[in-house]
């Protein structure tokens, strides 16, 4: 579970660079609109353009290439899965027919082309999401969502859940190490039983922690309203320029029929 702790620790988002300094509202607006373009486009070059630009931007702020690649690996494997499913199922025209240990596989041209489009969309979309997550902290994100009128309950729970994930990851790690030193994972049967105890302890600790948290919140004046009080500053000229920029890009793409919204 070590890699999870590293992923959640916001090491890259907490750095000071020009991408982390961009207003979170602008980032959210850009990502949502670019994701919509990525989804609506029939052209494989636009998603691949998003991929290359996102990669380049992340590399300019010195995010390690391996960290980006590690985040992309799973979506990529899912994309290949879809490519093969569509290649096997869709269309008539045979592109490749091969036999693997007596099993015949027939890949069709139309299916593969559709699959390729999906693959490019997966890569483009994921790269945009990674761009947001590597440059935005959870507190910035919550403040941004609050500005966009997302219900307080969602934002409060998002902040609470995210905050306690760290704590429980640490606690689980300690308990897991203790169980391992007492040979709790030597056989598959013992492993499952140890996981049961670990999960049970997690529930008990979560319950105890909820009581403590509420007492602390109450002591600091919590009366049932929103728990986040941070507000964002008013928009500056820079933010307006960014927003006008994306509106122009979107209009251009719709006008040139690269993005079809109807």
């Amino acid at each position: 579970m070590g890699f999870l702790h590293h992923t959640f620790s916001e090491v890259y988002a907490r750095r000071n660079n020009w991408l982390t300094e961009v207003d979170v509202r602008v980032k959210l607006l850009y990502i949502v609109l670019l994701l919509a373009i990525n989804l609506l486009t029939k052209n494989i070059f636009i998603p691949l353009f998003f991929l290359s630009v996102s990669f380049s931007l992340l590399l300019t702020v010195k995010i390690p290439f391996t960290a980006i690649l590690r985040s992309m690996l799973l979506p990529l494997s899912f994309a290949v899965f879809i490519l093969l499913i569509r290649g096997l199922h869709e269309g008539e025209k045979v592109w490749l027919s091969l036999s693997i240990v007596g099993y015949k596989l027939v890949l069709k041209e139309e299916g593969l082309w559709n699959g390729l489009q999906t693959c490019s969309k997966v890569l483009g979309g994921i790269s945009l999401v990674i761009l947001l997550s590597f440059t935005t902290t959870i507190s910035q994100l919550c403040a941004g969502l609050k500005w966009f009128r997302v219900p307080n309950t969602i934002i409060d729970l998002l902040a609470l859940i995210y905050r306690y994930i760290f704590l429980f990851l640490d606690e689980v790690d300690t308990m897991w190490t203790a169980q391992r030193t007492r040979l709790g994972y030597t056989s598959w049967k013992k492993t499952i039983k140890s996981f049961g105890i670990l999960g049970g302890m997690l529930v008990i600790r979560a319950f105890a922690r909820a009581e403590q948290t509420y007492e602390a919140m109450h002591a600091r004046g919590y009366e049932g309203g929103g728990i986040l009080t941070a507000t964002l500053p008013p928009w500056r000229k820079k933010e307006y320029v960014f927003v006008i920029g994306i509106v122009f890009v979107l209009s251009f793409l719709i006008y040139t029929r690269h993005v079809r919204v109807w």
Partner: peptide, 15 residues
């Protein structure tokens, strides 16, 4: 206490 309870149990289930 329900809000922090959902938050901590949610985090526990996530972990």
């Amino acid at each position: 206490v329900y809000l922090p309870l959902v938050g901590t149990l949610g985090a526990a289930v996530f972990v």
